[in-house]
Design a protein around this nucleic acid. Structure first.
Lengths: 155, 155
DNA sequence: ACAGAATCCGGCTTATAGATCAACTCACCT
DNA sequence: AGGTGAGTTGATCTATAAGCCGGATTCTGT
């Protein structure tokens, strides 16, 4: 599941998964998807349920008194929002206000929906183009020295 | 059980577990809930009974001569407050005054209720937003070199 | 020991946010 | 051109958060 689609957020802040991915997700028997923050950039991550389960349990198992670990747990676990396919097989996800603000996404606006294999990213359209052309984003990138324990997790 | 919800403490200092988590807790046959201090930040931890049992027994089993260990035992074990919840209704938990003060939570005020997988955190709403945006909290963060014995416990 | 006060705890009600359902329009393909 | 499927928008309905209220229990001070 790769590639790039431009879709729009509707007036209520909802996002519809592009049909080409919907079919594959259903084929893989995914019954839910999870939206959360990207820990480094002003963007959102979308994980199919099974992928989310493995990532979240790895994250949880890390010892929780290290400030860096706790920050990642808060950012990723604490901002997660789970949605499921509706009975008709369509998928409209309500992006919570806080996530929209984080990704600088306004209602009734275009966003970039990017397939990254087993996960997706959602970017404000201008930010995505800026990133593509190497421009600077308004939001700072979190630069930290990651503990070894985190390096094996593929967020 | 992930994500956060903004809920309000009622005029009597009670907190209602958000409905989306209630079903899952019941499904896991949890019959009690434990609230205690977060050892590092001005926040509260909420553990389902079974999770609390394993964490508290691990903590108890540690040697009691290391000052850091003793501190953690005091903070976490000594401030624990157990509530049994009745399956019907709203699963209201009374937050003891001392814990509310520690987390800077006043009656009839908004708090952030954050699902971190098998446990929850409760934050004063402003503090949580401050943390999310990288601002400084009024309360100092406890930064210590942890003994190996603690690293395997995921508080 | 008693009365008064404060705290605790469950039920009931209502406004609202979120989920569900339905319809429309546009683009592309035949 | 007509038809089909996808993206998008709108409308309705349900579930839930939160305020209110009354009763039960505990605490306190006299």
């Amino acid at each position: 599941m790769f590639g790039f689609t431009t879709i729009s957020i509707d007036a209520k802040g909802r996002l519809a998964i592009p049909a080409k991915y919907r079919d594959k997700l259903l084929f893989q028997n995914e019954d839910s998807i999870v939206v959360t923050r990207d820990p480094q950039y002003p963007a959102l991550k979308i994980y199919p349920g099974s992928i989310w389960n493995s990532i979240s349990s790895e994250l949880q198992s890390l010892q929780g008194l290290d400030p860096i670990v706790r920050n990642l747990q808060w950012t990723i676990l604490g901002n997660a929002s789970e949605s499921s396919f509706d009975p008709k097989g369509r998928m409209l996800i309500l992006l919570p206000l806080e996530l929209r603000e984080y990704a600088e996404i306004k209602k009734a606006e275009k966003v970039s929906f990017i397939g990254m294999g087993n996960k997706f990213e959602v970017w404000n359209h201008q930010n995505w183009e800026m990133r593509q052309t190497g421009g600077a984003l308004s939001t700072e990138i979190l630069e930290v020295v990651l503990p070894e324990s985190l390096k094996k997790i593929s967020f």
